[in-house]
């Protein structure tokens, strides 16, 4: 990115638990299996995500990539295996689930902003009600992140008055206001008009450069090349291939990966 964004990155990295050593595990998935009824959607998933690592997950629709990251904050329940997030294992215990959700931000394909609240209220709601932060402080933090995603002037509008790209940037700011240690992105640009994809990707690149731990389900291969530490290709509920972006794109190993890449890179 440009120099202006470089200047802001160090600051965000500091805000993001500088005490954590980079070799620490952020997410650990061990033999994770999940079924939707009879359908075996995740099969023996083993994945370790380091702190500050950026992972891009791609694959055909129905391959289980969204399900995988939704298991990390328990929007989906896994039926076998273990998932450990930030040193806390996900079990039935709702207290632990809520604890993990506080520290894991998520950005959805369809933004899922709260339409009855203004942009600012969307951003301050969780800090006030979950983190019990004073309103004034929450609003300062919200404005800080709204400036980061370059829409502070929209703070008092309702989500319905914004474009798709703006809404998605608000959604990113809303997640960041909780000062998460891990960010999950579930196809963040798939529902956007072509003209708006870039503005969202730029924000995500800046976030990646600030040292955030990120798991991103996306088909934006340019983004994967630019920021990913690892690219994961999934098919039929399994991890088929995993490699650095350079190797993944220039020298894919499995036939399935080659076919997939030949179909999306034209």
């Amino acid at each position: 990115m440009n120099t202006a964004t470089k200047a802001t990155t160090a600051e965000t990295a500091n805000a993001n638990t500088p005490s954590q050593a980079t070799d620490e595990l952020a997410v650990q998935m061990i033999d994770v299996n999940k079924w939707y009824g009879e359908f075996h959607v995740l099969r023996d998933i083993n994945l370790e995500v380091m702190r500050q690592e950026r992972i891009v997950i791609c694959g055909p629709s129905g391959s289980g990539k969204s399900t995988l990251i939704r298991c990390i904050n328990r929007l989906e329940e896994h039926q076998r295996g273990r998932i450990i997030v930030d040193g806390v294992e996900l079990t039935e215990d709702i207290k632990k689930i809520e604890e993990i959700r506080r520290d894991v931000g998520m950005v959805f394909q369809h933004f899922n902003l709260f339409p009855h609240l203004t942009v600012l209220e969307n951003c301050t709601l969780a800090p006030i009600w979950v983190r019990r932060m004073p309103r004034r402080e929450a609003e300062e933090i919200a404005m800080h992140f709204l400036e980061k995603v370059r829409i502070p002037e929209q703070a008092h509008k309702y989500p319905g008055q914004l474009s798709g790209g703006q809404q998605q940037r608000v959604a990113i700011a809303r997640a960041l206001c909780m000062k998460p240690r891990i960010m999950l992105f579930d196809e963040p640009t798939s529902a956007l008009d072509p003209e708006m994809i870039k503005e969202v990707l730029e924000v995500m690149v800046e976030l990646a450069e600030s040292g955030m731990t990120m798991l991103v389900v996306t088909h934006e291969m340019g983004f994967a090349r630019q920021v990913a530490d690892r690219v994961i290709f999934m098919d039929q509920g399994q991890i088929v291939e995993m490699n650095t972006p350079e190797e993944f794109f220039s020298n894919p190993q499995s036939e399935r990966t080659k076919l997939f890449l030949s179909q999306i890179l034209h």
Partner: peptide, 27 residues
């Protein structure tokens, strides 16, 4: 209310009653 509203509220760590009282019921 779309499922996404529940998911967004849960993903932010809201408890059931806060999710209902602040996000779902008002809408």
């Amino acid at each position: 209310i779309p499922k996404g509203q529940y998911e967004a509220a849960q993903a932010l760590g809201l408890t059931y009653w806060k999710m209902m009282g602040l996000i779902i019921l008002p809408q």
